[in-house]
Design a binder for these strands. Structure first.
Lengths: 106, 106
DNA sequence: TGTAATACATCATATCACGAAGTATGCCGT
DNA sequence: ACGGCATACTTCGTGATATGATGTATTACA
């Protein structure tokens, strides 16, 4: 998928993959793989961003002697998903504009 | 609309607004306004980018003593629109993932 | 005369996805 | 025991790019 297009979808995708239950970086990447591939550096950057904008909270848990950072979605995070649903209407209208064969003459 | 989301749609939108007939910067902005707003500096940057990647060709025409740069879409430009239609399927699948209430458990 | 619209250009800035590289631990086969 | 792979997270540099600010120049109109 086009990298520019990804940019607008990545944040919401990450939020969506956490909404069903707390999750951690490595797992998020695997869960999202069927829908969108992303590198680790990208994901951890996004998680940090979402955390500092209060869409996620984080809790470090020890698991098999290793540390895992579990992320939990907040009200703002859920709201971000709702906002995306609203934006979706605009996206669809743009899609229609782009796919209309006679555009430019209306 | 979220700026990150715009990034992936701007190029195709500009191409789409030209596909129906050659157009120029100032007019493109007005044509696109109902679907997406963009500043002049953004548009001219995009036009230059699309031109240097051979998706558009440009022809300078004098109009009322002023110069206008008319842009014409090329085969690559049309192909870019077709590619977007393919990408649309992925976008819809992501949309479904994001809006599915029980995501994370499937 | 002045102000808005038309039309295009350039520059600096901020955001951001990503590859590369690093740090650590656990697991498994030989 | 050792090597290699998976797990798990971090940091850094780079390139792409949308945008505001600013500039240039002409036409239209009050």
């Amino acid at each position: 998928m086009d990298i520019q297009l990804k940019r607008g979808l990545l944040d919401v995708c990450v939020l969506a993959s956490i909404r069903g239950g707390d999750s951690y970086g490595y797992k998020i990447i695997k869960d999202m793989k069927p829908y969108m591939e992303m590198s680790e550096s990208t994901l951890y950057t996004i998680l940090k961003r979402l955390e500092s904008s209060n869409m996620l909270t984080v809790k470090t848990v020890e698991h098999d002697g290793r540390l895992r950072k579990y992320y939990h979605i907040t009200g703002s995070g859920l709201q971000r998903i709702e906002d995306f649903k609203e934006e979706w209407k605009e996206i669809v209208s743009i899609y229609r504009f782009v796919t209309r064969e006679d555009s430019g003459n209306d």
